[in-house]
């Protein structure tokens, strides 16, 4: 479980097993999507597998995630997704109406995202060898000219913007999976971000980096960027938007919303001179209505993300490692 958590352990797998084995310059960039040049055209190319349990949850399903997840990975390189592949691994005995609902969700999500499912595959494994339905999608899209989104471009002074309130997806999935009854039902924020990104790039192609804070949450995304860019990141804790219901659920469970997964949010590092205009463009888009500045990149403490607490205190926000063990003695 820990190795899939999007934190230090999955980074370890990539660094120590996959990257050395595969080699290649493209993989070495280690972005959410690869930027490749084919026949003189710059393409974003990405794949992701979806093993979420349960298959349906408030605000979405594995089908929505399979489309939006890959669409968003492409969007983080600035690309509008053009074509998707979609592969199913089905466990023997999975009910057809369930599969049909997932397929419909995929179709609807693809239409909403303006992407076409162009190819696919289906395999069936023996009963007990799968979890009902696994989905893999891959996608390609064009990267607009002049757009170069990489953490290495981040410099001290960059403004950190999130597109809206965080934490809903992870809490929504957990509440159904674990049978937790919170005061208010929390819905996943699953959404395709290609349009929002296009609106941001329309202001200026000179955004430095975008990330969708999925597994490991905002904390993981900020840590990855800080490490790759060799800058420090300072976040004003009180500026990070968390819906009250999510904050309440996290408090009750002892979770930090900064570590909870999102499926329809992005975090952007923007040169300060463009920050206001980009923020305004985001707020004008339905998926960026709640966009806010949460902090900035700094020259101090490179590689480290620091949260400034309400009372003038500061704490290090580290990369999530396995379970969140307390350190208090």
């Amino acid at each position: 479980m820990g190795h899939g958590g999007g934190g230090a352990m999955s980074a370890e797998l990539v660094d120590h097993i996959f990257a050395p084995a595969f080699g290649g310059e493209v993989l070495a960039q280690l972005g959410d999507a690869a930027a490749v040049t084919l026949g003189g055209t710059r393409l974003a190319f990405s794949t992701d597998s979806y093993v979420v349990r349960p298959l349906f949850f408030p605000g979405g399903s594995i089908g929505d995630l399979a489309v939006n997840g890959t669409v968003n990975d492409l969007a983080m390189s600035g690309a509008r997704a053009a074509y998707l592949s979609c592969a199913f691994i089905l466990e023997e005995g999975v009910e057809m109406p369930v599969l049909a609902r997932v397929a419909e969700a995929i179709g609807a999500a693809a239409r909403a995202a303006g992407v076409e499912v162009a190819t696919g595959d289906t395999k069936v494994v023996e009963s007990g060898h799968g979890d009902g339905i696994y989905v893999n999608t891959a996608g390609i899209g064009l990267i607009p000219a002049g757009v170069d989104l990489r953490p290495q471009r981040v410099v001290p002074g960059d403004v950190v913007i999130v597109s809206g309130a965080i934490g809903a997806h992870g809490v929504a999935v957990m509440s159904v999976r674990e049978g937790l009854e919170f005061e208010a039902e929390i819905e996943s924020d699953s959404a395709p971000l290609g349009g929002l990104v296009a609106a941001m790039l329309a202001v200026t192609p000179d955004l430095h980096v975008l990330r969708d804070p999925t597994r490991g949450g905002l904390a993981a995304s900020l840590n990855e960027i800080a490490a790759a860019a060799r800058v420090g990141v300072v976040v004003r804790e009180r500026a990070v938007p968390v819906p009250p219901a999510v904050a309440n659920a996290c408090s009750v469970l002892g979770l930090d919303p900064m570590y909870v997964a999102n499926e329809g949010k992005l975090v952007a590092f923007v040169p300060p001179e463009h920050a206001d205009a980009v923020l305004a463009a985001m707020r004008a888009h339905p998926l960026g209505a709640g966009a806010v500045v949460i902090g900035e990149a700094v020259a101090d403490h490179p590689g480290t993300v620091v949260a400034r607490t309400g009372l003038g205190g500061t704490r290090v926000v580290d990369l999530p490692v396995g379970e969140q063990l307390p350190r208090i003695c």
Binding site: S251, L253, G254, L255, E323, Q324, P326
Partner: peptide, 8 residues
């Protein structure tokens, strides 16, 4: 230890 630091 329910919820790590929250339990503390």
């Amino acid at each position: 230890l329910p919820g790590g630091d929250a339990a503390v």
